[in-house]
Design a protein around this nucleic acid. Structure first.
Lengths: 123, 123
DNA sequence: ACACACCGCTTGACTTTTCAAAGCACTGGG
DNA sequence: CCCAGTGCTTTGAAAAGTCAAGCGGTGTGT
């Protein structure tokens, strides 16, 4: 009964992908333009390289992102990650989250009632 | 810096919540109507009780869902979980995912070209 | 009355995922 | 040459999630 209906509901699958840790962050970062590995790591904010590599590989096999190895002149290899068309369309998802976040998550303070002056879009 | 810069980008926070395992599934299930504990567990499809309890608690403190203990007649206590207004508005997010999933995730099978006719959309 | 299948949930052991830190091979600037 | 920066890989340990079982309670059938 364990491996049950991994069967095939696209939404179910989508959620499965998007809820992997950092995935949404990665996509969001990449929506602002393609980035190199470390650059991306910094943009994402707090993901360690091992996990990042793994996520990136996964997203690549799903063709949400592409890894292009920039061959400047023979040797130097700077890897640049960017979104594929499919990945780009996640913009709508990010937008939805963004919209929701702004209306419902601006002053949560559930147990920590101490956010003085959440500085109006610190983003 | 290490702990987490919960520093305050609502989007960042939102992503932080939504990428927790099962959260999106839970929300999606609840969008179809309120549910009891085990009922929800089944709807979500594969989450175990321990994790579910934990997620539900978390979502409750964020006021995305409410737990109402149904006092049928004096004793029996059936707990019913339902979305708050804030939670309900996640509909847009789910919709976005749904739309995206349908256009880009219908037949991936990238590295595992081995889906032996997944039993005709068990969704 | 009693067994039995449900309900909501907790507990404890076990597995998987994520992590921080370090290291490797390389380059470009001073 | 040396140091900072690039793109990763490797460790081992901690955190998160999972499984299986069980607890008290109810409601139904026999």
């Amino acid at each position: 009964m364990s491996t049950e209906h991994t069967g095939f509901c696209p939404v179910y699958r989508a959620i499965g992908v998007l809820q992997e840790k950092w995935v949404l962050h990665i996509v969001r970062a990449l929506l602002n333009g393609e980035k190199g590995f470390n650059e991306l790591a910094r943009a994402v904010g707090g993901c360690n390289s091992a996990t990042l590599t793994q996520r990136l590989e996964h997203l690549e096999t799903l063709t949400l992102i592409t890894k292009r190895t920039e061959d400047s002149h023979g040797k130097l290899a700077r890897s640049v990650y960017s979104l594929t068309p499919a990945g780009l369309e996640l913009q709508s998802v990010i937008d939805a989250i963004d919209g929701w976040a702004k209306s419902h998550l601006s002053a949560p303070a559930p147990t920590t009632p101490d956010l003085p002056t959440a500085p109006t879009s610190p983003c």
